[in-house]
Amino acid sequence: MAGNAENFGAPIDPPRLAHALLAVSAGATDKAALIGDLEEEFGQRVRTSPRAARAWYWRQAYSSLPHLLLERMRTERMRRLGLAALAVLAGFIFISLWEIFVARNAARGFAGLSGTPSFLAVRIVYLAAQMFGVAAAGGAIAALIFQREETFLHNAVRRLAPAAIVMFLPWIIATLNPADTYPLSFRLVWLALAAPSLVGGAWLVRKWLSRRAP
């Protein structure tokens, strides 16, 4: 910790939580240099105003987190986890749109077939189309993350990533909510199919992109 600035004789260190967040988020390659930079500048600022220096350190920490996490997802082992979280968000958006525009109309349209063998076929096609859409959504996110050039969409995804990670757990909890209108068994089957579809779609696109690169 910095500790080179004095206030009433006691060394003042950067905020511990902010420091820990940065240490956890930064990749192994840049961690020492990045933390060292912040410590050096904190030491300069704390001489003028310890309170302002701590606020500055916090601002640096929270504005750096999305960049550091996304960079690690792109370059390190965390990429699979991050990719899965982002793919789940894409799937969530897709399923929400599906529920609004397709599910209700399909239920009305095929109501006459209920209980017949054709109805089972319709359900299988319906589920397959849904999973294909989920996989495509995961693939689209992967394409945006792993393309190297900076584009508007790429930057937008980088900024949305923290929200995607935060939304991952509530979505799972909402899916398992007993008050949901679908039977629990159906929702569990749906989750078991949707998760591999999402990550599978993302993985396929990632593989395709890496083949294109030399």
């Binding site: 930064a26 640096q60 504005s63 750096s64 987190l65 960049h67 960079e71």
Partner: peptide
């Protein structure tokens, strides 16, 4: 323009990769 250390290092890392 305020620059976060995270944005700077991720950009430098990308430029180094290129």
């Amino acid at each position: 323009r305020a620059v976060s250390v995270g944005a700077l290092y991720s950009t430098l890392s990308r430029l180094e990769e290129k």
